[in-house]
Amino acid sequence: MTIAAVPARNLPKFGGFSPGMIRLELRRMVRNRRTVVFTLVMPAVFFLLFGTSGDYKTERVGGGNLTGYILVSMAVYGAMLATTSGGAMVSIERAAGWSRQLRLTPLRPAAYIAVKLVLAMIIGAVSVVVAFVVGSLSGAQLPASAWIGCGLLAWVCALVFAAFGLFMGYLLPSENVMQILGPVLAVLSFAGGLFVPVDQLGHTFATIAKFTPVYGVGEIARYPLTHDGNLWLAVLNVVVWTALFAAGAMWRFRRDTARV
């Protein structure tokens, strides 16, 4: 037996963040039927159920119709579900001991988080596109600028829920974290005026609504259509909640990866 000198070894670039890993993770995500139903099918079905009745199609909102308005709200809801479940994947991976296994690889924890965020945003984008395709085929009318603007904003602002998903994923070490978060998101969507416009909620609720995390995303995403509402308040809402959720996720993440 001969002992050769230990050959030189190198660390991977970008702490292990790579397209190869994203591809494999996407494939796994799509394999999970619950995720697909939750994030792609459900928002579209909700839209068809609640947004496509006859008078909605004729009632004008901004440069489009009410069906279009509801479509944007549902796209936000879908993007939110998608990014939350993308972020919340970490809870399943922690429960399975996968996070620990990854610590036996060169993958840096920050690169792992980056991969999760990219995945959350990819599936969020798909969710928005699916909702918009269904919407355009079912009578939703939006000006061209709103199709693009609303879609992009719904998607970008859903980043706040990717941070939320990560935070919850680290907080709740459960295999079924989405079974908890699904209803939570539904409640937040009502509270934030996504399912019912805030001004129909009554004065007290309308005031409270402005402080809930869904409110800002909804307002911003619909702005290209409605050109209405206080945009700066909405932006402030999104920024503050993103910062809060990201800080929470960082806090739990540091605890999780600390070497005791």
Partner: peptide
């Protein structure tokens, strides 16, 4: 090679 865990079922 660890004792238990460390694998994802849906891979």
């Amino acid at each position: 090679v660890m004792q238990t865990g460390g694998l994802l079922k849906d891979y």
